[in-house]
Design a binder for these strands. Structure first.
Lengths: 210, 210, 210, 210
DNA sequence: TATGAATGAGGCTTCATTCAT
DNA sequence: TATGAATGAAGCCTCATTCAT
């Protein structure tokens, strides 16, 4: 009846969300049942409905919180004030080790679900927009400093750079036999060579050019 | 006495698979029910089990056939005998128009499911491996011709290039407000600058450098 | 907070079991559907699964409880401390009236099912063993008292005597036109003459012998 | 359209019936599906309906043919013209070896089903009646010859003796650890002592009586 | 005679959700 | 706040049966 402790309430909500996240990672959104989530969270099914309006609400909340978590990670990396290119490379480096599968699953779940759920689509897009704007701003700063090719449209380039991270996640699932450090090195090179400025000098052709 | 046309049998199987594909695209693997699929295919629920052992078998078959379709598209593009870089860029260009959402959904569904289904994981990886090997071979050819940076490891580079296509698909869902042609141009530039050889000369800074 | 009455839980379980027992008696194990059982028990189909893991679990539980019931009846009869032979005869007498059909059905269902279900086979055999051992002990006592032929192996004889009760149940189904009291009298005579000791004197032939 | 060969027709029917019998033995009446039976018989489901009106018809036919087989066995034993008591003992001896389980299953299936199917109930009772009458006649003959206790009602005694065989089948399922030969010996003794005439002299007490 | 495609009802079970306590 | 009993719709699948060939 009375809100005894709104802080505890939020904490419980978070606990449930974490339990749900583990379930969803293992079995997917539709594959996880409310009772599985309750078991994982150690609460009763009835109780769960004090914290969430229904399964869809949980899914939306998980999608949000997962996107939040990714954004937060990214913000922390950016906070180190390195050149933006280094930050992106660092993110991709973080993705590549063996637990890439685990890290990637939920995002693809969210991407797929964004196709069906208007709410998730909105979340996804607003998150992406804010990350994109952040990156764009840094790119502009880099352009001002002469570190980034000024010919690039910051917004579009930002979107593409971010999409590279999704690609790296896909790679973790697709090519489990590819050495992750080598892959990271290729990404690094790919990014530096393409957006960097002044463009790195062409390496002398191994065949020798006159 | 009369063994009835195994051709018709295969055709029906394909029909059902197509119906299932449409459902899965709309509602996802777990979100599509057998009866929805049957309705879409215009058959009775019982009948479906003459053609597939169960829902999982359908999902696996769809995953396979979707990956096959993607591979086939890619092969066709490669068959044009352009430089590999152009082929990849062309693929990404194909992805970018407005129906990108539709084109992307099933792949993410498959990526997510590969986390849970051993069979799908195997399919995904073998498909990826064969695409990767193909691209790697072309990269080597390009290196021999002096079109591709010889410093790059072909296999790893191939994996990364392919992952760019997945990234482009993610971009279609994430950033629906980004102009797809501009994005394609950025991808193009990104790829050419990084793997191309002889490295394109640094463009003169638009700001003018002394 | 409040763990709800485990007693009520058990009671409900028993209620469902009783409903299932009635269904199984009417239609057999495989012939009774979960929804029939639910209707008989007055609960919803979903609810049944809070109490039983599945239909097989119900069948096993019914088999157990039916065997328990038979054993209990037998124990009560034995508790009257009559000679063992009288007890067996009394049991057979109880079986013979017109409702013999009803009484016999479930047992044959269990016997047939014991062929297919390892769990039921185990139950059946452990129940039989314990009844057999009980009877064997009483036979030994009878042998000590000179009431039972000491040449008989108690264990084997016990098994055979118990099997007579199954036979009597079969008779109820096979020969509905046979007078049950007469049959009981023949069983009585059969048992007394064969295991009794001192052997009853040969009756004088009614035809008279010189 | 035309009955090409009524003999072949009957033969096929028998083949199907045998296949069905094997299925029913393994899985029971309700537990065996038409398609299992078809697979076992090596025919198509549609074809089966040229020989039988439906599953129930097959069950009834199997029940009949199983009862027929049992009766035939019994007739053959009786044809040896031994005393009736020896014949019954021989039957029980045949039942007791280790494959008793296999031999018993179908009969219990039939007994249980006779509770639900009027047709099977009729079959069962008419078979039992005819066996009973046969045995009764032999008992009367034995009484005339002074081999059987003349005090026994032939019809009722016959029913009871036949029920002993059912009991022996139950014993095979209930008490798999009981030595079957010993059990057979006890049955033998049980029958001889009870219906035999002149009654075997009381054996001297092993303890010695004054 | 023989096949196997086709049906649709119904079986078992799971699930999201609600409600009394 | 917390429980778990309770519901009934729906999901996957199997089945007996029919029909065109």
């Amino acid at each position: 009846m009375r809100k005894l402790d709104p802080i505890k309430h939020d904490e419980k909500r978070r606990e449930i969300l974490e339990a749900a996240g583990r379930c969803f990672q293992r079995k997917g959104f539709k594959g996880s049942s409310i009772s599985e989530i309750c078991a994982e969270a150690g609460i009763s099914p009835g109780h769960l409905y004090h914290y969430f309006g229904g399964k869809d609400a949980i899914i939306v909340a998980i999608a949000q919180s997962h996107l939040d978590a990714l954004a937060e990670r990214f913000h922390k990396t950016l906070a180190r004030e390195e050149p933006i290119v280094d930050a992106i490379v660092a993110e991709i480096n973080w993705l590549t080790p063996g637990d890439g599968v685990t890290k990637a699953t939920l995002l693809f779940e969210v991407l797929a679900e964004s196709t069906r759920s208007e709410a998730i689509a909105r979340d996804l897009q607003s998150h992406s927009r804010s990350m994109r704007e952040l990156v764009a701003k840094l790119l502009q700063k880099g352009q001002a400093r002469g570190e980034i090719d000024p010919a690039l449209d910051p917004e579009t380039t930002a979107a593409v750079l971010i999409s590279l991270m999704d690609g790296a996640r896909a790679l973790a699932l697709r090519d489990r036999e590819i050495d992750s450090h080598q892959a990271a090195a290729v990404y690094d090179l790919l990014i530096r060579r393409s957006v960097g400025w002044p463009r790195p000098a062409p390496m002398p052709s191994p065949l020798g050019d006159p």
